[in-house]
Amino acid sequence: MIEVKNVVKKYGRKSVLKDVSFTAQKGEVTCLIGINGTGKTTILNAIMNLVPINSGEILIDNQKLSKESYETVAFIPDTIITMPSMTIGQAMTFMRDFYDSWNQERADELLGFFRLKAEDKISSLSKGNTAKVNILLGLALDVDYLLMDEPFSGIDVFSREEIANAFTDYLVEDKGVIITTHEIGDVEHLIDHVVLIDEGTIVKSFAAEEAREEGKSIVDIMREVLVR
């Protein structure tokens, strides 16, 4: 379980996260949804300890982020982390050398699944294929938790579908996943838990199936609490 407790993050005098608390369970897909600029990415960065928080606490399986707990979490940012001058194959080798949890077999499978070529330069790829490389690099890590920032953003509908498919095909059941999105459409049926964020505050947190029990879609709930 990833626990985010009363996290406050300020950039100068501007509060980006105002007392944010939520938990993401193992074996569940938790989706942070909000309009752009609401602090979603900052939350992921804070979990990964990439930005220092002003107050609050973040625990991964009851432990503060350490070198050991870091090995159990993979972060897929929305921009490619590896150098664009690398080929896909070189990026895979880089990841293999860098992470003990790298699963070469799964990486090769995903390469085939996405019909990507190892010799292609990352800088030469379309936006959709770049996103696929990003997803590949993340899903090929044998980790307990996977954080993905806007995995479906700004790419064509077919690439989105393929990524959603890879997501279900390669999602190990006991893995905990946190994704951020401002566009719920493609992932609506993959999500267990929804955390709605607005201006650095969590406005609602609910189970997707429970909303549907009341005859409401996730977007219906978003409309209720975000559009005033």
């Binding site: 959603a164 279900t168 049926h189 993959l190 999500i191």
Partner: peptide, 14 residues
Amino acid sequence: RRELAQKLKINPNT
């Protein structure tokens, strides 16, 4: 359960 989740493209928990 896993096969069906993959086939239907839904969450294994569902």
